[in-house]
Design a binder for these strands. Sequence first.
DNA 1: ACCGACGGTTAGTCGTAGCTTTCGTTAGCC
DNA 2: GGCTAACGAAAGCTACGACTAACCGTCGGT
Lengths: 110, 110
Amino acid sequence: MTNALAVLETLADPTRRAIVERLADGPAAVGELARDLPVTRSAVSQHLQVLKQVGLVFDRAAGTRRIYAVNPEALAVVRAYFDTFWQRSLAAFADAAAQAAADHPTSEDT
Amino acid sequence: MTNALAVLETLADPTRRAIVERLADGPAAVGELARDLPVTRSAVSQHLQVLKQVGLVFDRAAGTRRIYAVNPEALAVVRAYFDTFWQRSLAAFADAAAQAAADHPTSEDT
DNA sequence: ACCGACGGTTAGTCGTAGCTTTCGTTAGCC
DNA sequence: GGCTAACGAAAGCTACGACTAACCGTCGGT
């Protein structure tokens, strides 16, 4: 899937963001992640399910542990979304500035 | 301010995102925005206050109306955030792949 | 000077996301 | 075969965020 909006909403939660930021430095198990966070392992596990559902992370069974890692592609999608979003806003900003200049011109123009 | 995390959390709400996306195509007043949304003007107004607080939009008084417009710089900050975030995840992904290849090599890796 | 359009503010309601607790399951180890 | 560590699942609670409704201020028209 890797929907840009879904990923965006998922990344809004501070705990979930902390998890993904941690995983962006390398794969880790649930226990390791929970050790550095102010929540229980259960909460971390639940967050990981959500993250997995939107395609932000994927897991790999390693004995009794589960190693989670980020999916760069999902982040690339959000990156692209904000890229075009930003450019659109830039164009609108330039238009608005030009409009304002036409409405009440100053010495700055021409 | 234009904090990347604050902007990110603000943009997680669908209604707020719709507002900013609309403003990314050009400035608009509160009434115009509310007309295209399934919520009341009051809700739109409240959202605009939040958006203004994080620096995503700015307003300009025009008689009895208030014209809102996006601040491209705020979006640029989030864009940059995801840019580095994505690159970090890419590096971690490459490392993990190399590690996996070293652990159980196949014919794919020379 | 009145009146209507346009917005911001406040109080209050409702849904839901995030969290903990408890329990069930599976894999490694003695 | 028990025992423990590591997770996931289900249930329940709590707090917060989004929304509406009602009210007040303000600018512009006539």
